[in-house]
Write a protein that binds this DNA or RNA. Structure first.
Lengths: 349, 349
DNA sequence: TTGAAAGCGCTACCAT
DNA sequence: ATGGTAGCGCTTTCAA
């Protein structure tokens, strides 16, 4: 690594002068400055992490510390997945408005990767962390984040330390199902997770489990019961949903409405039905969950449970900031908040 | 700020022991360690940027430096915009495969924000930078990045220093238009930028200008000319495109095909035509540009110029890495590369 | 205009 | 098991 010392040696001046020249201070003679800059260039001097560390060390330590903007790290499941993408965009905007920086990383499916994000980024660059759909065991998250303020988004696993922001899974799904029931649908299919998810302790607190729970609640409120037969299991992608419909084929006509656990799934379902020549909503009504913007552009426009994503973003950002800036004490319990929603009625149901 | 020194004073041990205890080294007695950890907790000790700086300084400086993963900063225009989102996802995956870290930031419309990204993030945490659709003057980019390897994505403004990765705008658009021509379309409309973009020196090198250029080339290759009358100006969003179609209304039937400068626009156009009761492709064929995945899920499936996004990502990542790791010298000129593509023929044209 | 010295917070090394 | 010392690369302060 090239250091200022190297440049100093090469040019025959002191490190101090190199430092001054490089920062464009006016107490260096133009000729000297020129010479130093050129040497730095030709030696390929780079203000790299180590150099920066040294600078920060010195600058932060003294009283004329920079009016430091807090940095919030954000782990997002898939950048090219509509719902996480919208959340990321909104978090970035909110943070910007709060005058703080955000650094995003994409989590892949393997926990190894999530672990590495926390280790390498969160603990190095960030003052706080927003973790969206984490796969890591809660314990590990708490341990790895080393008392660094952390907010979990849509992760309702039992724990008391971390702030949590949740999409309105139960209540939103229930409302959607009641809407379908009110419109007279009686043969409703549920596309996403299987029926079993609600009894599986591992997945009970997952988004899928919570949404299915809402469906079951609404159904039982109407004196009906959720059965395995009504559940269509599929990957949570539109491709997966589309081919799931293809596989079911004509017998999908047994349903008069399909409630899909996410907008992605719903879009794939509509396309799959279209492939079979089944019209939405005339033959089968389709409803989604999330409120992704593109749903409005679809034909038919997607009727969906629209989560208040800006609110989700601001709750997440404000939660971390409250702790970073000490408004909430280090030892105070995590707060659990559920985001608002509304039924976005368009054409598909 | 709480430092190890504070903890040392409070517990009556040395800073060294605090350091050891905090890092879980085994040369501290369990009781002492316990006491130190508790004190650290109650005092709210945080490994913050300054602390980290100090650690890095010490650790990196010595020879047993960590097998440091390079960190690449990526500035993305809008996380919730399909095309940038897919690029971001792909860059993240590629980087992961190359064993390096990526840090993403969202650029907003104002240059102020871009400036701040480069200043605060790139120059602090990153070994290299990928800038997608930058608005900053090229000079500023070069200056702000202070000899830190930087790759521009889809930014073809004249300059020699920075590596550039470009989507196949001219060639892709030309191919698309030839395809429409071959299918017998003679009244083709172009949706996106106005005709003037190709003559405006400010926008000549923009994605819009370059795509329009390709259209004009294909047209003139067939003995036809691009005229103002064939250009439909719209914001580059599906909402904008949809309402642009609404405004034009029935007279849009004067076209038998519409080539849209992006998939976003194309999707909005299809929806807008649908609103008017115009069928795609029967009444009017519609074609897009980008190759966003969701186009396949649309009805009708979007025919589009599919940019090889994985290649775009790997070219970008490898370009920075080449320079970070010194395979390409600091003073070597920027390389300009154009990404591959293919016509993705689906149903809309 | 220039530079010597001190010190930022931490960890490696070696002595106790 | 514990701690003293040195020093990472830089900037600040102050003296020359």
């Amino acid at each position: 690594m090239i250091t200022m010392k190297d440049i100093a040696n090469a040019t025959g001046v002191s490190v101090v002068t190199v430092s001054n020249a490089l920062r464009g201070k006016d107490n260096v003679s133009p000729e000297t400055a020129q010479r130093i800059l050129e040497t730095a260039d030709s030696m390929g001097y780079r203000v790299n992490a180590a150099n920066l560390a040294a600078r920060n060390l010195r600058v932060r330590g003294t009283r004329n510390a920079l009016p430091e903007k807090p940095v919030i790290g954000v782990a997002i499941f898939e950048f090219d997945n509509m719902q996480p993408a919208q959340l990321a965009a909104e978090i970035s905007r909110t943070a910007s408005a709060r005058r703080c920086q955000t650094l995003f990383q994409q989590t892949l499916t393997d926990a190894e990767n999530e672990h590495s994000i926390i280790d390498n980024i969160a603990n190095q660059f960030c003052d706080g962390l927003i973790l969206s759909s984490a796969n890591l065991p809660v314990k590990d998250i708490i341990r790895f984040t080393k008392r660094r303020p952390t907010v979990l988004v849509d992760d309702d696993r039992p724990q008391e330390q971390l702030d949590t922001v949740l999409s309105p899974c139960e209540i939103g799904s229930a409302e959607a199902v009641r809407y379908l029931l009110d419109k007279g649908h009686r043969r409703i299919g549920f596309v996403g997770d299987g029926f079993g998810v609600m009894d599986d302790p591992m997945r009970l607190h997952s988004v899928g489990g919570r949404r299915m729970r809402g469906c079951a609640d609404a159904l039982s409120g109407a004196g009906m019961a959720l059965t395995t037969g009504q559940c269509i299991d599929t990957e949570w992608t539109w491709e997966g949903a589309r081919s799931a419909i293809h596989q079911i084929g004509e017998s999908i006509r047994g349903y008069d409405a399909l409630f899909c656990l996410t907008d992605n799934i719903a879009l794939g379902v509509i396309r799959g039905l279209g492939d079979l020549g089944i019209r939405v909503p005339d033959d089968i009504a389709v409803m989604g969950f999330d409120g992704c913007a593109i749903g409005e552009c679809f034909m038919p426009g997607l009727t969906t449970v629209a989560v208040d994503i800006p609110q989700m973003a601001s709750l997440a950002v404000d939660s971390v900031l409250d702790r970073i800036e000490g408004r909430i004490g280090v030892n105070e319990h995590g707060r659990r908040r559920i985001v608002g929603h509304h039924l976005e009625i368009r054409e598909s149901a």
